[in-house]
Design a protein around this nucleic acid. Structure first.
Ligand SMILES: [Mn+2]
Ligand SMILES: [Mn+2]
Ligand SMILES: [Mn+2]
Ligand SMILES: [Mn+2]
Lengths: 150, 150
DNA sequence: TCCGAAAGTTAGCCTAGGCTAAGAAGTGTG
DNA sequence: CACACTTCTTAGCCTAGGCTAACTTTCGGA
């Protein structure tokens, strides 16, 4: 009986490179996802999404929000009416809806596997951006099975 | 019986800001973790870790590796002997061991909840950096219970 | 109505992490 | 042992996403 596991061989270099590349891609879209999700939440809850509120909730300066919103606008996700708040384009609404659904699913899944609610919220904020469609489907299956067994 | 769930209220602004701040912090350390983990893997598998191999496996240019290694060196994680490869400091070895353990755990966990192995490897590469200690413990408990149940 | 507070923008700065192109420095083989 | 090839570094560029300080614009209450 062996004590130590045989170390797994390194994956092929190209495969590993592809994984890192996809991860870098996910990192690049994460900020946009979090912003549009928050804008959608504020629009629903408050009827408006102001830059100052986004700054407070993101924990970031107003100047940073201005710059980030500029990129979101450039990318066709957001429209602005100064002093009248921010609005989502169709593309922005789509992204927000997807981000929100993903966020909720990841939170529920983490709670279902035994994580406390507050930590689940914390970790979901990062994990959500790195869970593939296949992973989200696995999480959904898990929740459905858990509920059926309930 | 209600059809639609009541939308959850927004969390307190300070809580939400703290979550985003922690996520940004995790993003900043992710590159270092991936590099030292890879260096440790190469040292074990090949007996040396050369910049050119890291570039190939990270999917990045050699110039980028030079710059990143410079930061790791500045931060006391890595030592270099030009043309003789890279070496980890004690701190680097510690970080690599932790990163490796976390990586393996996340992969095994994702497979256990029904994800295919290749996607598990892909998603783990990102998720590993956002799973808190509490989450990792929950994943371990889940795997242990799964094993006990057979 | 006006004037101070709040909200937003602008300017100027920074670091991380990417890139290409060009040059320097080892390595190993004929 | 020389020279071609590989490896590594340097220089110069870029974008995202942070910051502070100073300015402008709008809003609302006295
Ligand atoms: Mn998030
Ligand atoms: Mn989110
Ligand atoms: Mn990783
Ligand atoms: Mn990893």
């Amino acid at each position: 009986m062996r004590r130590t596991l045989a170390p797994r061989p390194l994956p092929p270099a190209e495969d590993q490179a592809a994984r890192f590349a996809r991860q870098r891609e996910a990192d690049r879209t994460a900020t946009a996802e979090d912003y549009v999700e928050l804008i959608a939440d504020l629009l629903r809850a408050d009827g408006e999404a102001r830059a100052v509120d986004i700054a407070r909730r993101m924990g970031v300066s107003q100047a940073t929000v201005t710059a980030t919103i500029g990129r979101l606008q450039r990318d066709g996700l957001v429209e602005t009416k100064p002093y009248r708040g921010l609005f989502l384009t169709d593309a922005g609404r789509d992204m927000a809806a997807a981000a929100k659904a993903r966020h909720e699913l990841v939170v529920q899944f983490l709670i279902a596997v035994g994580l406390d609610a507050e930590t689940a919220e914390q970790d979901a904020e990062g994990i959500e951006h790195h869970a593939s469609e296949a992973a989200l489907q696995a999480f959904e299956r898990f929740l459905a099975a858990r509920k059926a067994a309930g």
